[in-house]
Design a protein around this nucleic acid. Sequence first.
DNA 1: CGTCAATTGTTGAACGCTCAACTAAACGGC
DNA 2: GCCGTTTAGTTGAGCGTTCAACAATTGACG
Lengths: 153, 153
Amino acid sequence: MVVMTRWLNPDEQRTWRAYLTASRALMDTLDRELQRDAGMPHAYYEILVRLSEAPGRQLRMSDLAEAAGSSRSRLSHAVARLESAGWVRREDCPTDRRGQIAVLTDDGFATLAAAAPGHVEGVRRHLFDALSPAQVDQLRRISETLAERLTGS
Amino acid sequence: MVVMTRWLNPDEQRTWRAYLTASRALMDTLDRELQRDAGMPHAYYEILVRLSEAPGRQLRMSDLAEAAGSSRSRLSHAVARLESAGWVRREDCPTDRRGQIAVLTDDGFATLAAAAPGHVEGVRRHLFDALSPAQVDQLRRISETLAERLTGS
DNA sequence: CGTCAATTGTTGAACGCTCAACTAAACGGC
DNA sequence: GCCGTTTAGTTGAGCGTTCAACAATTGACG
């Protein structure tokens, strides 16, 4: 049996296109700024942020992957790069011999601290300064709904 | 003089993290579905869509780049791939000898037509089904504001 | 007209991500 | 305790994007 496609109506179409344009432009802009000012892509910045917030500035690879919304493979490659940049180091997990622990180095923390103000300023300028407080709230609710549905958590 | 960083307040922080998680998960999911079902990433799908909507199913490379929110370089590489897949062909521009025109082939149109229902279904399932009509409207306004500010158009 | 600047599009290298395949260790049931 | 199944993490190949450099053409302006 043929199932009819539920096409997007004009409002949805317009919303979807605007969303695509906006989110792509936003992430491209922030990525470029971060690359220029801190020498790392946004994905790597986020890894450093998550490590910096963890107790002891360290996390199991799996936990870090989940926190950063990354696949294990992606994280493996990323941490390899971050390690060779001297921002992260790997340690063996004492309780699970399969495990690896990613530890933020002092150098990594300093780099993050240096990059953070500029990046936050970018997020503010490109996102929050453009929205009313009510819109920020709307965006939060929408995003939380979508995140929950998509990540199943 | 030192300029104080305007850090994100807790609400903004939460909004930003939820936004990051949601938009990353959404695009990752749609990208994976499109790759699985149509053998192309979302960026390529969008190029084909823009071509299919243009008069004569063709566009100058620059115009296509702008329509697809892509850099010239990216589009050049992408069209090279689409051409070798037989979905797009290049023609010389008659009025500007620097110009190239990307033309959607019948094969490309057929591939797009075959991919569209599944992709639209995905957009609906992962995005619109999760939101109320009011939220769709909110997301449209927010996105249009951001898109305008970021792309300056 | 001639020249310098801007625009169009391509190219190659470096980088990051995805996917599938793989090793090693832990778990679960008997 | 043993054996099949999960789980943790890595690896390499292939693909897509970015960036800087480049060639070719057009435009602007004196």
